[in-house]
Design a protein around this nucleic acid. Structure first.
Lengths: 376, 376
DNA sequence: CAATCTAATGAATCACGTT
DNA sequence: TAACGTGATTCATTAGATT
């Protein structure tokens, strides 16, 4: 195994160029279309297959509005067994069409990614990383029944253990303020102007953000490489590939998606440098929840907090809530406000703890200590 | 399916208490020891199984025993096959020993988590979330060949699709500064004083941070619940369970780890009961009928209620039903839903009354006053 | 015109007890 | 067991309307 960056590999070989349908969309079933492609002919594959969500009944937000779920036929499978067979079939073709030193990316959620990942390994692919796409603005869990499903998972794999795959290490490090790019990436979900719409409705229920593809193509392909996307949808992969000077091949069955993708890619301009800056710099804001300090034993449940003048006295509980002597409970902010009869309160500066021999210190001091210990 | 917090479930039943080795470490092979436990006897399982293969060519037989130095005889498909058999064997026992409404947590990396996740599904577990542990201080990729592997993945699953699992939604929300807890969690890796060492060397190569177990146990168990850890290692699960007032059972084969865990857990201090308490969901409060408030003159029949924006106006009747100006009649919930044309409505927060000099207040405030006055 | 309010929406396996 | 009544439940962002 190893990352090769220095060796200039040949572009698509002459015989391939003749047969490869470069920079076009094949309107066809993905497995059939892949079978028609020559073996060992593409440099990278990006695949966003159906997730097999298995959703139940209708879902409403607390304000009574209806949640527009993914109910399309292409996401329905009779059973896990059928889904596995489908997964194995298209991944086998992916393995065949990939060049020896090519890599594959597959995105999914907990509904399908474990089955996809196991099949990837079964077929002899060598997993290089799993990448977590952290959504900065995920849909909440409206019923309060689980943790907010705030991420999706990507698998990056080479064709085999010894393959000399492309990884543009320096580009990734530069992009990440001279720190190694990590396996957790934060992007917003696709919305606003970028989201394709027709008659006011989204064209595709699961359009991926261009920023995600941008980072993937920049990291794992070279200019002129051929990128295959067997689940092309509205063509995010094609649009980004064109912008970055990579060739692309899309496979998509639904004509509506093909039409939208065609128009979109025609409008895409190669190397839009201005967009690069906004899409590349991973932003992260250190935000600390009071509960984090409790979890990490900066404050032990049962600890006593008071305000600076010791008028109010409360006890810290296991979940980071506070309980007053009169039995009122709430977060550091809410209980501080309630006890004072104020509309709001900054709990970080209001509440204090007794530091050993140093008198009262605001709990904000603990937050600063935490940030110093955990931020690079 | 759904999160149940209101039903006080029995602790380990009498017959289980007799046979369950509560708060002890079983020095044994995990599959054999689990087979000896009664069916449907534990509330939660936390498992940190071996990560398999690839790293150093480790191999496991289906019974979990280690295969030494045979790398030439085993290709990676054999290795995967045997790891799958081992995974299936211990997960099947986990399924058997779990109570009908219990849940399981499994942690892993990209080397094994896809195989584990697929087997979890194959055995009938119902995945509730996958959780990403983002390491604030991961080990860098020294050779610059991949993305920094900066996270591990946890799977949280119930015993089946319809199970009524425990999820302490309010406690998690409080812990996260009044925002829903997401599926991506950030913790430092285990180090410093927390990391167990002997003769200057770490006792266990993959000791998990207590903060991770703290959040898991707080989220998905109740005080007094029984937590089983079949890969106990140096006993992080036991130490945190003891602190939080949960029972624990550990299974560990290596005597060195057992000794370290025993000493560690003995030193752990349980929090007192009030500190273990967490924020409770309204689901756990006793139900109050709106009519009760009318009967007790918190609201007089004939009183006027409106929504917050005063778009709808209704009159309270003697039996606690409401009547609108257009003559529609119904409960606080039904009429609120009907007037808005919504599928459902929480009348307690939708309807407001005019409080003396204090403007509109939701009728839920009256319910809270009633609860305070009548609950011990 | 700037500031502010309102409405819409996103790959979601999203309730429970009683009759 | 299916139907029904009660009532618990949301965050970040964008776009458009209003002040």
């Amino acid at each position: 195994m190893g990352a090769v960056q220095t060796i200039a590999r040949p572009r698509a070989a002459a015989d391939d160029s003749a047969t490869l349908p470069l920079d076009t969309i094949l309107t066809a079933d993905c497995i059939a279309a892949m079978k028609a492609l020559p073996a060992a002919s593409v440099d990278m594959i990006f695949a966003d297959p159906p997730y097999n969500l298995q959703l139940g009944g209708e879902l409403f937000r607390p304000d009574g509005t209806h949640v527009d779920a993914v109910t399309d036929d292409w996401d329905k499978f009779d059973s896990l067994k059928h889904y596995d067979a489908f997964t194995r079939a298209w991944l086998a073709e992916a393995h065949r069409t990939l060049k020896p030193n090519g890599t594959i990316w597959v995105i999914g959620s907990y509904h399908n990614i474990f089955r996809v990942g196991a099949t990837v390994q079964d077929l002899g692919f060598w997993i290089l990383n799993d990448i977590v796409w952290r959504k900065s603005n995920p849909m909440p869990n409206f019923r309060g029944t689980r943790f907010t499903n705030a991420h999706e998972t990507l698998i990056w794999a080479s064709k085999g253990e010894k393959a000399k795959y492309t990884f543009n290490y320096r580009a990734m490090k530069t992009l990440n303020d001279e720190l190694q790019m990590r396996s957790d990436w934060e992007f917003p979900i696709c919305g606003g102007q970028e989201r394709l719409k027709k008659d006011g409705h989204k064209v595709h229920p699961t359009q991926k953000p261009e920023a995600l593809l941008y980072r993937i193509l920049l990291a794992c392909t070279k200019p002129g490489d051929v990128v295959l996307d067997p689940f092309f949808g509205t063509g995010t992969t094609g649009a980004v590939a064109k912008r970055l000077g990579r060739h692309w091949i899309g496979i998509e069955r639904e004509r509506g998606y093909v039409a939208a993708a065609t128009q979109r890619i025609e409008a895409a301009l190669p190397l839009d440098e201005s967009a690069v800056a906004t899409m590349q710099s991973p932003r992260q804001q250190p935000k600390v929840a009071f509960g984090t300090l409790v979890e990490n034993d900066y404050l032990t449940p049962g600890a006593i907090l008071t305000d600076a003048k010791r008028r109010y006295r409360v006890t810290v509980r296991a979940d980071g809530s506070l309980v007053s002597e009169c039995g009122a409970v709430g977060s550091i902010h809410k209980l501080g406000a309630a006890l004072q009869g104020a509309p709001a309160c900054n709990g970080w500066t209001f509440w204090h703890y007794e530091a050993d021999g140093a008198g009262l210190r605001p709990i904000d001091a603990l937050r600063q200590t935490w940030l110093l210990a955990t931020q690079p």
